[in-house]
């Protein structure tokens, strides 16, 4: 699992790669933490680019849910973009597509967050 960051205008984009399963969820949570702290009305909106995520398990989805909760409490903005077909299906079956903002690509996510 790897996470790298870049900026698209005022939006912070995190490129996530690999598997977000029981072996890597904690690592993902740790890598995400500092970016979540900065995701506030005065900080940067956050887009998670999932184009490199090949699989996400329940524990990985839990990390996303906690991230969304934290950002909402901070009144920040977060979205997920570019799900692979497998991850799209996992989102659908788990109903995470109903509770998280998901966009087809990073540009659409940034636009959806109003940045």
């Amino acid at each position: 699992m790897e996470v790298s960051s870049s900026n698209l205008d005022s939006t912070r984009v995190l490129q996530v790669r690999g598997r977000l399963d029981h072996s890597h969820a904690k690592e993902f949570e740790t890598a995400l933490a500092p970016h979540l702290l900065a995701c506030t009305p005065t900080g940067s909106p956050l887009v998670l680019d999932f184009s490199g995520v090949v699989y996400i398990s329940s524990v990985g989805l839990r990390v996303l849910l906690l991230a969304a909760k934290q950002v909402k409490a901070q009144q920040g903005l977060i979205a997920i973009a570019a799900l692979t077909p497998i991850v799209t299906e996992v989102f659908q079956v788990s109903h995470f597509n109903l509770v998280l903002a998901v966009y087809p690509n990073v540009a659409a996510a940034a636009a959806g967050l109003g940045t």
Partner: peptide, 23 residues
């Protein structure tokens, strides 16, 4: 429940999901 419900709005309701069952 769905996994999303089981760990969000219905967390602590004491039930699980199809996803966790499969895993």
């Amino acid at each position: 429940y769905s996994l999303a419900d089981a760990i969000s709005v219905k967390a602590d309701w004491g039930h699980s999901s199809n996803i966790v069952g499969v895993e």
